[in-house]
Simulated assay, not measured.
Amino acid sequence: MSVSPDLKVERKPKLSESVITAIRKQLLAGEILPGQKLPTEGQLTETFGVSRTVIREALAKLAADGLVEPRQGAGVFVTEHISTMFGALAADMGAKDSIALHVLEVRLAIEIESAGLAAIRRNAAQEAAIQEAFFEFERMLLASQPTGPADLAFHRAIASATNNPFYVEMLDVLGRRAIPCDVTSPWSTELVQSDSYQRGLQREHLVILNAITAGHAEAAREAMRTHLGASQQRYRERLQARQAFYASSVKAAAGE
């Protein structure tokens, strides 16, 4: 039986996506306020008529987008210092390749100055937090585990060391989408998960860390500019390679 070319088959949305959409709408409408605790897993299960697994998947996605945060032993709370409108926008970006480049462009505008300010303004505890995130990245890398959370923690610790909460808020808006090397990112590939690739990231992190701990603001800015600029270039090269592969695949298929 032939299938009409005009027939469109739409993918049935996952149950977790329906839960995510519903919670986002409540956030945007102000029905759930910043800092407010979400209902328990059991309550959400009853409300949406789905399993606990579906609820956990939805909450993990909302947390990855920076809209909610789990607190050990207390539950899941709406992120306090974040614009839910911007957070929802970041969550709706989808997996379009160009978005990763847009995110990196925004990060360049934010994080170059945050690195310089961190070099000047950080206190001992904040400097220690940056170092801890750096060594956590190293630990995860040696253990062959996802480094994305540690990578984000490193950049977030630098933003926090500016002592200007808006730098942290902007990174929280971007959430884990800010880190393409995270295996949970829609832009993650085998290349960015490779040891050699992430070793390169860590070398760039070390230059940033050394400049901040030395209190050299301009060196810290330049190190961050180099790091994020290199990330832009690496991602452009991956996109070009992907496009070339697609073009060759189409050509090969046409010749069959």
Rank of each mutant, 00 (worst) to 15 (best):
S2C: 01
S4T: 04
D6P: 00
P13N: 13
S18E: 07
I20Q: 04
T21N: 10
A22H: 09
I23M: 09
I23D: 07
I23T: 09
K25Q: 10
K25G: 02
L28T: 13
I32Q: 08
K37R: 15
P39H: 00
T40Y: 02
T47K: 15
R52W: 04
T53A: 14
R56T: 01
E57V: 06
A60R: 15
L67R: 11
P70I: 03
T79S: 13
E80G: 05
T84A: 07
G87F: 12
G87R: 10
A88R: 10
L89Y: 11
K96V: 09
L104P: 01
R107W: 10
I110M: 08
I112H: 08
A115L: 06
G116H: 05
L117H: 03
I120H: 05
R121F: 06
A125E: 13
Q126S: 14
I130Q: 10
Q131A: 12
Q131V: 11
E132H: 03
F137W: 03
M140C: 14
L141I: 10
Q145A: 11
P149S: 05
A150T: 05
L152T: 00
H155T: 11
A157V: 00
I158C: 05
Y167A: 12
E169F: 04
E169K: 12
L171T: 04
D172Y: 00
V173N: 02
L174G: 02
R177W: 05
I179D: 01
V183F: 01
T184A: 13
P186K: 14
W187T: 08
W187P: 09
S188F: 12
Q193R: 15
D195C: 03
D195I: 10
R199F: 00
G200W: 02
R203I: 04
E204A: 15
L209Y: 07
T213Q: 11
G215W: 01
H216W: 08
H216R: 15
A223R: 05
M224P: 01
L228F: 10
R236M: 07
Q240R: 11
A241F: 13
R242Q: 11
F245E: 11
Y246K: 13
V250D: 09
K251Y: 07
A252P: 02
A253H: 11
G255A: 15
